[in-house]
Amino acid sequence: MTTSLRDRLAALSATATREGAPAPSCEVLADRPDGTVVRSGRTVAKAHAPDGDPRALAARLRIAAHPLLHGILLPPLPVTAPDGYLTRTEEGRALTRWPYGSPVPPDDPDAAPWEDTARLLAGLHRVDLRQLPGPVPPMRGPAKAARALARLRTAPVPSNGPASGRHAPVTAAGALPAAAAAVERAWATLPPWARGEAPPPRTGTLCHGDLHLGQLVRHPAGDGPWLLIDIDDLGRGDGAWDLARPAAWFATGLLAPDLWTRFLAAYRAAGGPVVGPDGDPWPDLDLPARTLTVQTAALAIAKAATADRSLDDAETAFVDACARMTSPAQQLAPAGPGVG
């Protein structure tokens, strides 16, 4: 992040300060190529991805501010600009303002609000697209998966390494070439829509597009209700995508069966339309869960290669799941209780 961008974000987040009051100190909450977030007091400012579409972002901001999303999405704060909820840098990068909310504590997994997350998703998925300010842009989940594979293919993965059988788990620490090959094989099994190469077969649901626990905050901070944040991938699509990351974590053994069962039960109890009210949800979730498993594994390998390190246990679990996708069973979901 350049000094000028930080200063611009600090000024934007400080505009909510009461006149005459001293400006609060500036804190960088996130600084990644696809987004930088700066906090000043009770307000945050975000610089969105440089290659993003400002018109699509403006549409997503109008949706997030719509009354139908009250209590589901954190609403943006207005800015003094023609677009109403976003302004731009001299280089054209989109900037937005938001209320500050307290995130899920990263060092306290027991505090993860799985059931609240499920209820928020159910509410999001029940929103009638016809009542939203349009046009509603497409959900960007498959496009992000394709970008993850592109990043893997440009990462400094060694060209040689320990060989891996076609269906063998990739468990050897540092076996990045074998891991990358397993991910590519799994990617090749996915249909074109999941790879971002064709429209999805189902597009009638408002989707978050990038659901994980980092996308939730309490607002007001501290003891307010949980709300979904980060609308950069929000749009029309297949709502199964939003359930697929918890499903993939469950399938790889990283989410306990009881937590998955509670998450799924809460979604169904709240009237979530993506899966039926009972029975096995996996026919609806399998392909999106596979895709997000491949995406996660691809990013893990790319990051490990760039940092010249081995895969950790969680990353290896996703790579092993990719290897299982090309096994004769073709089954990602673990067998046994808790699947439904």
Results as ranks from 00 to 15, higher is better:
249 W>A: 13
315 E>M: 03
92 G>E: 08
193 W>F: 00
18 R>G: 13
143 A>T: 14
317 A>K: 03
73 L>V: 11
236 R>C: 04
66 H>V: 13
248 A>N: 06
314 A>E: 06
316 T>L: 04
15 T>E: 12
340 G>K: 00
44 V>A: 09
324 R>F: 00
282 W>Q: 08
231 I>A: 15
101 G>L: 10
330 Q>E: 15
63 I>W: 10
169 P>V: 03
143 A>S: 15
170 V>N: 02
69 L>H: 02
329 A>T: 09
176 L>E: 01
223 D>M: 12
52 G>S: 14
35 G>E: 01
73 L>E: 00
208 H>S: 02
95 L>Q: 08
178 A>V: 07
202 R>N: 12
121 L>A: 03
286 D>Y: 06
76 P>M: 09
295 Q>E: 13
299 L>V: 11
161 G>N: 06
165 G>V: 05
17 T>C: 09
267 Y>C: 06
120 L>E: 02
37 V>K: 10
199 P>F: 06
288 P>A: 13
166 R>N: 02
60 R>I: 01
276 G>A: 10
276 G>Y: 03
5 L>W: 10
251 A>F: 02
61 L>H: 06
10 A>L: 08
118 A>E: 02
180 A>S: 01
196 G>S: 08
128 D>N: 05
201 P>S: 05
157 V>K: 08
100 Y>C: 11
323 A>F: 02
294 V>I: 07
232 D>I: 02
175 A>M: 01
261 T>M: 11
204 G>W: 01
233 D>W: 15
127 V>W: 13
326 T>S: 00
226 W>S: 11
332 L>N: 06
73 L>F: 08
176 L>M: 05
190 L>H: 04
287 L>R: 12
90 E>R: 08
